[in-house]
């Protein structure tokens, strides 16, 4: 009796149609684009214009590239130029295009123990953090942001692998890393979009921004068509063209978080 009722309930649920969406592509992208709300802004415009739905799997750039390599997404929107070029060079994808950029910001406690507020040189800022042994929260997840952060330590000549205590590798996405940094009053490198949309700031504030080196370009790449169904590849191409075309670029231009523009269109027409 009991079993029959549970079964009936489950069958009703199981056979009720899931959300109908016949035509869609899957793109792997970064947590920064998803969590900033950019996709919520772009996708309805694209779907309205083309009738193609877009399913976004938001992960770190490293994992997004891996998903593309496995052929589990149709296109990528990521930010790690070196990784992107390698991805294209090994034949996993093609037609990499600039889409937009945002910038990284160095976030830290208002008390600023490393005295870096207002610096315009991110490399100098990280070397001061290292000198002060001030707590620093690193993504540590092989994401685009993490890869960018590691470039600054390298430029400053700091060996974070040997850093005891103050350098914390979290292995988390941007948001959880910010949550943790807020809880332990640590410095952290974040993308401006995620920061702008982040609500649990507590005592954190932007301490360093505006350095050209903090420039964070995003690229769109199509995944090798041999790895994907043909109709998906064709629709992915439409997305790719739209995003880097006039309409997509205008849509990026018009995106605001609390009135602030965080993504700047960059595609060369």
């Amino acid at each position: 009796m009991l079993r029959r009722m549970v079964l009936a309930a489950a069958l009703v649920l199981a056979f009720a149609p899931a959300r109908a969406e016949d035509r869609f592509i899957t793109i792997a992208s970064t947590t920064s684009t998803e969590q900033s709300g950019l996709f919520n802004h772009l996708l309805p415009l694209f779907t309205q214009a083309t009738g193609i739905g877009v399913r976004v799997v938001a992960v770190g750039t490293g994992q997004a590239l891996k998903i593309g390599q496995q052929g589990d997404a149709d296109a990528l929107l990521v930010h790690d130029r070196a990784g992107e070029d390698k991805f294209v060079a090994e034949g996993s994808g093609f037609d990499r295009r600039d889409v937009m950029y945002n910038d990284f910001v160095m976030v830290g406690p208002k008390a600023d123990p490393a005295k870096i507020t207002g610096l315009k040189d991110a490399t100098l800022a990280v070397s001061k953090i290292a000198a002060a042994k001030a707590p620093f929260a690193s993504r540590g997840d092989d994401s685009g942001t993490h890869r960018a952060e590691l470039r600054f330590w390298k430029a400053a000549g700091v060996d974070v692998k040997a850093a005891a205590g103050w350098y914390r590798e979290l292995g988390q996405g941007m948001g959880p890393t910010l949550n943790t940094a807020a809880a332990m009053n640590a410095y952290v490198l974040a993308d401006r979009g995620t920061w702008a949309n982040f609500k649990n700031r507590q005592d954190l504030t932007i301490v360093v921004h505006g350095d050209k080196a903090l420039f964070n370009p995003y690229g769109s790449i199509l995944v090798d068509t041999k790895k994907r169904p043909a109709d998906k590849a064709a629709d992915a191409k439409i997305w790719h063209n739209w995003l880097t075309g006039l309409k997509g670029q205008a849509a990026i231009e018009s995106f605001r978080i609390n009135g602030e523009q965080v993504f700047f269109p960059q595609a060369r027409q």
Binding site: Q35, N179, F198
Partner: peptide, 8 residues
């Protein structure tokens, strides 16, 4: 996701 966004 909401935790990631800091919207606790």
């Amino acid at each position: 996701l909401e935790t990631s966004k800091g919207d606790l």
